[in-house]
Amino acid sequence: GPMASDKRPRTAFTAEQLQRLKAEFQTNRYLTEQRRQSLAQELGLNESQIKIWFQNKRAK
């Protein structure tokens, strides 16, 4: 629909990254900035991508 703007492409996470994020989520529903930074480095992701993933996951 018209609401779907092309400005922010959805990140396609790899299965491996998703597995890691899910495991982290089961341990911590809320990430500290430090955890998020190390996860971002570990997974080669953007911190904001991880932050948003957690927000979306909590919203469900």
Results as ranks from 00 to 15, higher is better:
G1S: 03
G1C: 07
G1L: 04
P2S: 15
P2G: 15
P2H: 15
M3A: 15
A4N: 13
S5N: 09
S5V: 05
S5T: 13
D6I: 04
D6Y: 00
K7Y: 06
R8K: 15
R8P: 15
R8N: 15
P9D: 09
P9H: 07
P9C: 14
P9I: 07
P9L: 05
P9T: 06
R10Y: 07
R10T: 14
R10Q: 12
R10E: 15
R10S: 14
R10K: 14
T11P: 13
T11W: 14
A12E: 13
A12N: 12
A12I: 13
A12P: 14
F13G: 01
T14E: 02
T14Y: 02
T14L: 03
T14K: 04
A15H: 12
A15L: 08
E16K: 07
E16F: 10
E16W: 07
E16L: 08
Q17K: 04
Q17Y: 01
Q17S: 03
L18T: 06
L18C: 09
L18E: 13
Q19I: 11
Q19T: 10
Q19V: 12
R20T: 05
L21M: 04
L21N: 00
L21P: 00
K22V: 13
K22T: 14
K22S: 12
A23M: 11
A23R: 07
A23Y: 09
A23W: 09
A23H: 09
E24H: 02
E24A: 06
E24L: 04
E24Q: 02
E24R: 01
F25G: 01
F25S: 02
F25N: 01
F25M: 03
F25L: 04
Q26G: 06
Q26C: 11
Q26T: 11
Q26A: 13
T27A: 09
T27N: 11
N28Q: 06
N28K: 05
N28M: 04
R29I: 06
Y30D: 08
Y30A: 05
Y30G: 05
Y30T: 12
Y30F: 09
T32K: 04
T32N: 12
T32M: 03
T32L: 02
E33F: 06
E33W: 06
E33T: 10
E33I: 11
Q34S: 12
Q34I: 11
Q34M: 09
Q34K: 11
R35D: 07
R35Q: 11
R36S: 12
R36V: 14
R36W: 06
R36E: 09
Q37V: 07
Q37K: 13
Q37G: 07
Q37T: 09
Q37H: 13
Q37N: 08
S38W: 08
S38F: 08
S38V: 14
S38I: 12
S38Q: 11
L39H: 00
L39W: 01
A40L: 01
A40F: 01
A40N: 01
A40G: 04
Q41H: 08
Q41D: 08
Q41G: 06
Q41S: 08
E42H: 03
L43N: 01
L43M: 06
L43A: 01
L43W: 02
G44T: 04
G44F: 04
G44V: 04
G44W: 03
L45H: 02
L45M: 08
L45S: 03
N46A: 12
N46P: 14
N46T: 09
N46Y: 07
N46H: 11
E47Y: 03
E47T: 06
E47I: 06
E47L: 04
E47D: 05
S48H: 10
S48T: 12
Q49D: 15
Q49I: 14
Q49S: 09
Q49A: 14
I50P: 00
K51W: 12
I52T: 10
I52D: 13
I52V: 10
I52L: 10
W53Y: 09
W53F: 09
W53C: 03
F54L: 02
Q55H: 10
Q55E: 13
Q55P: 02
Q55W: 09
Q55S: 08
N56I: 11
N56W: 14
N56G: 07
N56F: 11
N56S: 10
N56R: 13
K57E: 12
R58D: 06
R58I: 13
A59Y: 08
A59I: 11
A59M: 11
K60M: 14
K60V: 10
K60E: 14
K60L: 09
